[in-house]
Every structure is written in C-alpha cells, then in structure tokens.
C-alpha cells in the first residue's frame, strides 16, 4: 500500500489553488487582527467545470466558513523609554574609559624611563605644550591654516572631479578619450611631486591647496562616475516619459540618486584633504599643523610633534563626522522600511 502523502502548496491565485487541491487553507491579513485563518474543504465540483466558476464557488464558501483559528495580536510597539534607550550611542560611554586607559598606559610607559624623553614624551608634557600654544593663540592659527588649505583643495577638487566624472559617466567618447590620461595623473605619487608643486606655486596657501586637490579629486571623480552610472534606467525612462528636461533629470533624478556614492567619496576625500595639506606643509611652509610637526622635529621637541599629530587627527575626525552627519540627514530615507 503506498504511503499517504500530504502536499502543501503555497499559492496566491485563487483559481490555481482550487484547480488541484482537495482543501484550501486561506490566510488573510485584516486590519485589526493580524491573521485570520480558515480551512475550506472544497465542495465536490465536477472536474470539467471551468476554473473561474470553481473560484466563485470557493469564494462564496469562504464567507460562510467559520473561522478555525485566530492568531495573536500584532506585536505591541515599544514603550517610549525603550525607544529612547535605543537611540543612545552606547559606544560613546566607552570613550572616557578608553581615553583614560590610553593616557595612563602612555604615562606609565613614559615614566618607566625605559625610553628617553625625546622618544616617548610624557603626556603631561604634551598637555603643557597644548596649554602654551592655546594661550599664545598659535594653536588656533595652525589649525585654521591647515583647515583652510584642506577645505579649499577639497572644494576645488570636488568641483572639477564631479564635472569630469559626470561627463565621463554620461558621454562615451569622453570616457574613451579622457580616462587613460586621468589615470595617468592619478598614478603620479602626490608626495613625490609635492616639492615640484612648491617650486611652481610658492610656499604659501596656493601650493597646499593644489596638493590637497590633487590627492582628493580621484576618489570624488570615481564616486561621481559610479553614482551617475548607477542611476536606474527605469527611473530615467519614467522621467523622459514625463517630458522632463535634461536639467530636470539632473536636478531631480541624477543628483539625489547618486547622493549615497557622492557622500561615500566625500568621506574618503575629506580625510585625504588633511593629509594633502600636511604633506604640502612638510615640504615648505611657515604655518600650519604639518609645519608644526617639522618645527618640533627641527628643535628636537617631541611633545610638539605629538601635539601636532594629535591635532591633525582631531581635524580629520571632526571633518569626517561632519560629512557623516550630512549623510545621516540627507540619506534618512534609506532607513525607511527597515526594522
């Protein structure tokens, strides 16, 4: 005797569901009760009856069939205090702890006298330098100079790179003609060429801006190309069907659609711009955090070098956080529909 088998067939279509089945379990979603479930034994219908008519018969029997089981209610929304708890950045609570550990570890290492003071200076000495340079205002000047160089370079690079990236992504002939030369440009090591840039543009602001721009344009251009190429062709067609102009397609489709990639590129570029400014200042400068590093090294004052490096890190971090915040506010729609 053959083993009896039970076949469960998931089906969305009423017609095909009853075409082959002996019993149908209907699952419905209702506004208040999450799920309503009922089992309907199919009325004996002659197999030759058209499926549509069978479907009507079934539909009428569903309404008269009693509800077999009711599932539980929808999950209750979280209480307010738990939603607030979720919003807190718990990682930040660790920050003072980690900071304290690092500081103490560093202090212990310095106090062990295993390394000379000019190799591992005591954190208190670095703190003293910070206070001195804060008091005479030179710290703010150095930070401001580096920040200005980095941001100017980033700004100019972003303008050129997004324009270039856009035409390369949209016009095949530009991609074909320009791309090899642009890659050649990127292949020049910025650090190696920076002395030349100083010779050409002088040791003031201009040369640092050029170096910062040279180091940031490539990630911005690649981000633009990827972003524009990723614009959905279906949405393009929808815009065209709505008689949108080229400018409208750019403004309302391409820019918002490429925004995630553009902001990703900006995240990379913004920290690189600080690197570019510092590199320029290493070669030749009279102010700026990179200059401060070289100055400290020149007079064998390691605490000043450490201070300058820490300040460069802080500048990078702050700039990165600003872009990350911009991302959170511009791309808030990406959180939609996710638990």
């Amino acid at each position: 005797m053959p083993k009896p088998t039970v076949t469960v067939w998931m089906e969305e279509g009423v017609h095909s569901a009853i075409f082959a089945q002996q019993a149908v379990v209907g699952v419905f979603k209702l506004p208040l009760i999450t799920y309503l479930c009922c089992v309907i034994g199919l009325p004996p219908v002659h197999p030759n009856v058209h499926s549509t008519q069978k479907g009507r018969l079934l539909m009428s029997s569903i309404t008269s069939t009693q509800v077999v089981s009711l599932s539980t209610q929808a999950p209750r929304p979280l209480p307010v205090w738990r939603r607030w708890l979720r919003k807190i950045e718990w990682r930040l609570l660790l920050l003072p702890l980690i900071g304290l550990l690092l500081w103490q570890g560093w202090a212990l290492l310095a106090e062990s006298n295993y390394y000379a003071d000019f190799i591992v200076p005591h954190p208190d000495t670095v703190w003293a330098r910070l206070e001195e340079r804060w008091a005479d205002g030179s710290l703010v000047t150095h930070v401001a100079v580096t920040l200005r160089e980095a941001l100017s370079g980033l700004f100019i690079a972003s303008l050129i790179a997004t324009a270039l990236g856009y035409i390369i992504a949209r016009v095949k002939i530009f991609d074909y003609l320009l791309t090899p030369y642009l890659i050649f440009l990127q292949a020049i090591p910025v650090i190696a060429i920076s002395p030349l840039i100083i010779i050409w543009f002088g040791s003031g602001l201009a040369s640092k801006v050029v170096i910062a721009a040279m180091i940031t344009w490539f990630p911005m251009m690649i981000a633009t190309i990827v972003g524009i190429r990723n614009v959905s062709p279906n949405l393009r067609e929808m815009m065209r069907a709505n008689a949108a102009s080229r400018w409208q397609i750019f403004r309302h489709l391409e820019v918002p659609s490429a925004m995630p990639e553009l902001l990703g590129g900006l995240k990379i570029a913004v920290t690189l711009s600080v690197v570019g400014a510092a590199v320029g200042e290493f070669v030749s400068a009279r102010e700026g955090l990179g200059y401060l590093v070289m100055y400290g090294r020149g007079i064998s004052d390691t605490p000043t070098v450490v201070l300058a490096v820490l300040m460069l890190t802080v500048v990078s971090l702050v700039l990165y956080s600003l872009v990350a915040m911009l991302e959170t506010s511009l791309l808030s729609w990406r959180k939609a529909g996710k638990p």
Binding site: N234, L235, M238, L253, P256, S257, W333
Partner: peptide, 11 residues
C-alpha cells in the same frame, strides 16, 4: 510601468 518606478528618496 510594470515596476512602480518610484523614487526611493521621495515620500
């Protein structure tokens, strides 16, 4: 269209 073709960044 067959696909809804909505812009995901627009409400």
């Amino acid at each position: 269209f067959q696909k809804d073709n909505l812009m995901p960044w627009r409400t």
